[in-house]
Design a binder for these strands. Structure first.
Lengths: 145, 145
DNA sequence: TACTATACCATGATATCCCATATATTACCA
DNA sequence: TGGTAATATATGGGATATCATGGTATAGTA
């Protein structure tokens, strides 16, 4: 399970270390790396492991190849996803398209979200988090274990 | 699993490299290459491996033998399909009929769709993708883990 | 024989692998 | 408990291999 945040450097080759703690939770049986794509809600990168992505793909993939309805969804999710393999140090190379989309330059923040995680511009995430906290207070949603 | 997009050149012989990452996912046991045919929905080329094509052919057999749909599909897909073998560098030679149909000239974009992929005119695909993204947002189909 | 299509070879760019280092964390032992 | 060694991890850079792409040669065909 992916928890908490980590902020790391993006080097001049576009590489960034995936937090060691996250790497443990990534199923590398089929593919040693992560799948990354644009978030639909935020200016951030969404990431998960191959197995999870395959489940999504299978749910879209129609044995009825000729069904018209799911075409748009299939295209925008699958064609917009990237397979990012780990190098021997546990880094991935983020494609410029995703970096630009998320406004990431020299640093990025990994944000755990349970079964997936996100990669943000550090400042953008900080701002978002502050807002989220305010909203929680405003709505008087109180967390009790 | 075919993911993400790759835009490559079509040389003056009509050859184009199939993305290395796609080549890995292509089952070459029966035929070392791809099966390509006109998309019935888009101005694009539909492509898959021999194994998947066989599955589709089998699923067509399950349709009512006398149905109009089956006839149309059988005729337009199966009879209009091309077997495109890889050369030693992993390229295929796209037939002019398909190039013309998809409006492809100097460049083409490979689009991953999970169990199959498409080949588009780069600009046409860019436009389509932008629209698809908008539609998804509008319909509030949001990806949540 | 001319034309087309396939097989083979060459090359530059890019991405991947591998090693080095610094810092942080853990383990071990006095 | 305190101090030191050992390990893990993030980051950097250079070497190597892969890949897209262009060109040439050979075989097949009409």
């Amino acid at each position: 399970m992916f928890l908490s945040q980590y902020t790391y450097k993006v080097d001049n080759k576009g590489r960034i270390s995936v937090p060691a703690d996250f790497r443990i939770g990534i199923n590398t049986k089929f593919f040693n790396g992560i799948i990354a794509f644009r978030s639909y809600k935020f200016r951030a990168i969404e990431a998960l492991d191959f197995e999870k992505m395959k489940k999504i793909a299978d749910s879209l993939d129609d044995l009825d190849f000729f069904s018209e309805t799911k075409n748009d969804i299939t295209t925008s999710i699958l064609s917009d996803s990237y397979k990012l393999p780990f190098d021997s140090e546990g880094r991935v190379c983020l494609p410029i398209e995703l970096l630009n989309f998320a406004g990431i330059k020299t640093q990025a923040t990994f944000v755990g979200r349970g079964s997936s995680f996100q990669i943000w511009n550090p400042k953008a995430f900080k701002d978002y988090l502050q807002n989220a906290r305010k909203n929680i207070k405003k709505k008087k949603i109180i967390f009790n274990n």
